[in-house]
């Protein structure tokens, strides 16, 4: 669980940034930190994405080699 706390500052900054432009979530963190001139003037964007999943199966699975059964989502 502790590893997820590392991303808490990122989420806080993102949520503040998105309060100003809720329809443009991708790139909001970078725009909040560095401004939007790179994107506006040069068409260069820095987009962030992530997936976190809570999984539970009916079997006790100590190890799985079925990525499509484990919410693989890249």
């Amino acid at each position: 669980m502790q590893r997820f706390l590392h991303f808490l500052p990122l989420l806080l900054v993102t949520s503040v940034a998105l309060a100003e432009e809720p329809d443009r979530p991708y790139g909001s963190l970078f725009r909040a930190i560095a401004g939007d001139s790179l994107e506006r003037d040069h068409g260069i964007a820095v987009l962030g994405f992530g997936h976190v999943s809570l999984s539970e199966a009916n079997h006790d699975i100590p190890a799985s080699r079925m990525p499509q059964g484990r919410a693989r989502n890249t």
Partner: peptide, 16 residues
Amino acid sequence: MPQDEGLNLQHIGLIV
């Protein structure tokens, strides 16, 4: 590839 049930960080990433 061992993976446990429960909470998993599948990925966090950036595209430039």
